[in-house]
């Protein structure tokens, strides 16, 4: 029995995965830009766009995950969504995706209840978003059927490149920050 939904699910899975990654790129770039002074947009707008693109990306990620699991031609079950590197098929690449999902859930959850988690804990967990991004790129490149096509490769390379460049700028700017520093000499003598 040929099931006409099979290729549809497959296309949905690939498309939603790609667009989700695009949205994540946008979110990462906006997140990096949020430290900037002299904005083109008011900073609260940058913040809102960052959150909006992240949440939309998460929404599409849900579509992606559901499509992949429901697809009878893909041998993944619900368990593989959470527990990495246990899949029957393409264990490594799936695993990267699984890890990314796990971390992303943590990042988003802590951001929603940011005030309860406390600023320091929130910041540390939020920094793992970079890992999420790297894992997602890796997952997409490794597992993607399209990854060798020129358009997909170009898209991935541009996204990753932009993210890296932005990160570099941010790190350099953070180093000579707003002039605040802990007076390093105020240490308690042993």
């Amino acid at each position: 029995m040929t099931d006409l939904t099979e290729p549809v699910l497959w296309y949905v899975a690939r498309a939603s995965g790609l667009v989700s990654l695009l949205l994540l790129t946008v979110s990462v770039l906006l997140g990096i830009a949020s430290g900037a002074r002299g904005p083109v947009l008011p900073r609260f707008v940058t913040q809102r766009l960052h959150r909006a693109s992240a949440l939309t990306g998460v929404l599409l990620l849900v579509v992606h995950v559901v499509a992949v699991v429901v697809d009878p031609y893909v041998s993944l079950n619900w368990y593989d969504v959470w527990w990495p590197f246990a899949a029957d098929d393409q264990r490594l690449w799936t695993g990267l995706g699984t890890l990314a999902v796990d971390l992303l859930v943590l990042v988003v959850a802590t951001s929603i209840v940011r005030h309860r988690v406390g600023a320091r804990a929130w910041r540390r967990i939020h920094l793992t978003a970079y890992a999420v991004y790297a894992l997602s790129i890796g997952h997409g490149v490794g597992i993607g059927t399209d990854s060798l096509t020129p358009w997909a490769a170009a898209m991935t390379a541009t996204s990753a490149g932009l993210a890296l460049a932005a990160l570099g700028v941010r790190v350099r700017r953070d180093r000579d920050r707003r002039g605040k520093r802990y007076n390093a000499e105020l240490e308690v003598p042993t």
């Binding site: 430290g35 900073r43 605040k180």
Partner: peptide, 12 residues
């Protein structure tokens, strides 16, 4: 001790 002059408060 936390404020880092992001300035969102002044915008909002």
């Amino acid at each position: 001790t936390r404020c880092d002059a992001h300035g969102l408060c002044a915008e909002l």
